[in-house]
Each structure stands twice: as structure tokens, then as C-alpha cells.
Amino acid sequence: MKKVVIIGCGAVGYRWYFDGIKKSKYCEVAALVDIDEEALEKAGKYLHNDNLYSSLEEFLSSKCKADIALILTQHSSHFRLIEQCLNNGLHVYSEKPFAETKREAQYLLKVAHDKGKFLASAPQIKLSSRNQKVKEIIESGVLGKIALIRASGSNMGPADRKDTDYNPKWFYNDGGSLASLGIYTLSIIIFLFGIPDRVASYSGIAFSNRTVKYGPNSGEKFKVTAPDNQIAILDYENGMYVMFDGSYVVKHPVDYELIIHGELGTLLVGGFGGPDSIILENEHGKQKVGPDDSCHLEWNLFWGVDNLAKCIQQESELIVSGEFAKNVIEVMEAMKYSNKENIIVRLGENER
């Protein structure tokens, strides 16, 4: 079992990671770190762990040891914490995005390489059997040449979600819809097709005044200061285009996250998994071709940390690699620059 120090004990941990580590066959909690004393004590009780530290520095100077640092803090702190953990001999798994720019990502990957450590990152989309099946179908050639993809990763965000049990305002201010939500669908596109050649993107604030609909902050009104509406055209320069949106402005999300149009047919991709999560439509009619497994029923984001642990033990390749996450960060950075400068951005050599 690999020992994990969890850095950041807020809502992301409870929603996506804490229950996962309880079930893990590869990891166990070594310690918890958070600057908020109340949040730290609450997480300690939930995870039955008494090794509580108010800062990463305090943990690193203690006698408590860990193999992996799991970073669940706000985006802006990821770079500093990852660098510090790597330099102190820890493998790292970070929530997304692990860096703000491609240059930052490359630097952290070099530090990891120089220290002989692994740097892994969310989102864990490559572990999904649904996404793996989509890639398999595309590579089989059954769709023929791909021409047009509609990729929609939008909803209204956590302020409108009934299961929200935390203060969601951060996601509309420091977070923003692209880095918090759209990154999932964008990552799937890059997994399936690689880095595009050119990007044209637009973002802005559509709904500047919001109200928290559910949870402990229900009824509170707040201002939106980060872009909540993000669209982009990704050009693969072979006549193939992706029309992407990753926004907090869609009251009724579309049924299919991806609609992939090829010369010989269309692939409709929606839901988390199961046979009906992928529909192939061609001259033979419609067929359910999604994976017939329980991946979507058992899914939890801690699988990414488990993958890192198995990689450290040489039982698996690192699927949730920092290298792949760097590619996603590069495209996100290009999208932001395109919007800021009102230009089409050409990316570097394709890494497909």
C-alpha cells in the first residue's frame, strides 16, 4: 500500500476522493494538510487519521512519511505545491489543471524527471472504458474519415446543482468554466485526436449575477468574475474541425457529449458508460456499441491515484500522465490567448 498525504481537505475531497481512498487496494492515508483548522479536523475524523498538519512545510518537517502527495487545493496553488513536493521526494497526483501554462507544465515535468518521481494529473478521462471504446471505434475505420465533431461539456455549474453541499462561488470566480468543467470534454477530444493545429476561441461572462440554488449557501446572490461561457473551434488541418463548448450557461445539457461525424457514419457519445453510451449510426441503422461493463457504476476519481500507485509498483503504465495533461494545458492556454488577442493561434508540432 502506498501512503498518501492529502493536501487540501475541502469539497473536492469529499465529493470525489475521500471515499475512493477508503476503498482503494493500493493506497492509504498517511496524513492530511489544510490551512483551515476546522476543515482539517473534519477530514481527519472522516478518514480516521490523526496526522493533521496546517501547512505542507509542517508535514515535510515531521516524522510522518508518504509516497504520494495528492493535491486538491485551488488551481493557483498547484504549481508551488507540486514543485515543493517533488523536490522533497514525493510522487505527485494533482487535481486539474496542474499548471497554468505549457511552460510551467514543462518545468514541473522536468523537475519530476530529474528527481526520479512521477507527476500525474486529473482529469482521469483515459481510464474510462467508454472513452477507450470510442477511440477503438474511431481507429477501426468504421466511421471512415472524420470530418466534424461537436463536443459539448456545458451545464449551469455547481450553483444550480441539487447535490451541491458546499459554497460554489469559487467556481465562477477563481475557477471559471473551462478549467473547472470544460477541461473534461476537451481532454477527451485530445485523447481521441491529439493536439489541434490551430485554435480560435471566445470566452466571456454571460450571466454576471447568479444565485446559489441549493446547499448551505442556498439563496445567496453573487457576482461572476471569471468567464462562464467558453467556445472554440479546433482545426486539425485535414478538413476536420471540432466545435467545442465548456460553459456554465446551459440549463438543459445536450444528450450527447460528443457527436462524431465521419464519411461512413456518425457516433453519438453520451452518459458515463454502458452499452447505450455509444450509438453508431450508419447505413445499417443504429447500434448500441458502448462497453458492456461496470466501469460507469464503480467510477470514482481516486482511480487516477490508484493508477499512479500501480505505476510506482511497476504493475501498470502511467495512464494519467503529466505529459498528457500538459497537452491539454497547452490547448487551454492557446484558447485563452486566442480570445485575449482576437486571433487564430497555431500550436506547435502535433503530438498525436
Results as ranks from 00 to 15, higher is better:
Cys9Asn: 14
Gly10Ser: 09
Ala11Ser: 15
Ala11Gly: 05
Gly13Ser: 07
Trp16Gln: 15
Ile21Leu: 02
Tyr26Glu: 15
Cys27Ile: 00
Ala31Ser: 10
Val33Cys: 07
Glu37Phe: 05
Lys42Gln: 14
Leu47Asp: 12
Leu52Trp: 03
Tyr53Lys: 03
Glu57Cys: 07
Glu57Arg: 09
Leu60Lys: 09
Cys64Glu: 15
Lys65Leu: 11
Ser76Cys: 12
Ser77Ile: 09
Ser77Leu: 14
His78Ile: 07
Phe79Asp: 11
Leu81Tyr: 13
Ile82Cys: 13
Glu83Ala: 15
Leu86Lys: 10
Ala105Leu: 13
Gln106Met: 13
Gln106Pro: 03
Leu109Met: 12
Lys110Pro: 05
Val111Asp: 14
Ala112Asn: 15
His113Gly: 11
Pro123Ser: 13
Gln124Ala: 13
Ile125Thr: 05
Lys133Met: 14
Gly141Glu: 07
Ala147Glu: 07
Ser152His: 12
Ser152Glu: 05
Gly153Thr: 00
Arg161Asp: 12
Lys162Asn: 12
Asp165Glu: 15
Phe171Glu: 06
Leu178Asn: 04
Ile183His: 01
Leu186Asn: 00
Ile190Trp: 01
Ile195Tyr: 05
Asp197Ala: 04
Ala200Asn: 08
Ser201Trp: 10
Ser201Gln: 11
Ala206Gly: 10
Phe207Gln: 03
Ser208Leu: 03
Pro216Asn: 15
Glu220Cys: 06
Lys223Leu: 13
Thr225Asn: 09
Asp228Gly: 04
Asp228Tyr: 02
Asn229Ser: 13
Phe244Ile: 01
Tyr248Lys: 00
Tyr248Cys: 01
Tyr248Asn: 00
Val250Cys: 01
Val254Lys: 07
Tyr256Gly: 01
Glu257Phe: 08
Ile259Asn: 09
Ile260Ala: 01
Gly271Ile: 08
Phe272Cys: 06
Gly273Leu: 06
Ile279Phe: 03
Asn282Val: 06
Glu283Arg: 12
His284Glu: 15
Gly285Asp: 05
Gln287Asp: 10
Lys288Phe: 10
Gly290Tyr: 10
Gly290Pro: 09
Gly290Trp: 08
Asp293Trp: 08
Cys295Phe: 07
Trp299His: 11
Leu301Trp: 12
Phe302Thr: 02
Asp306Lys: 02
Ile312Trp: 01
Lys326Met: 15
Met332Val: 06
Ala334Pro: 06
Ser338Ile: 03
Ser338Met: 07
Arg346Trp: 06
Gly348His: 10
Arg352Gly: 09
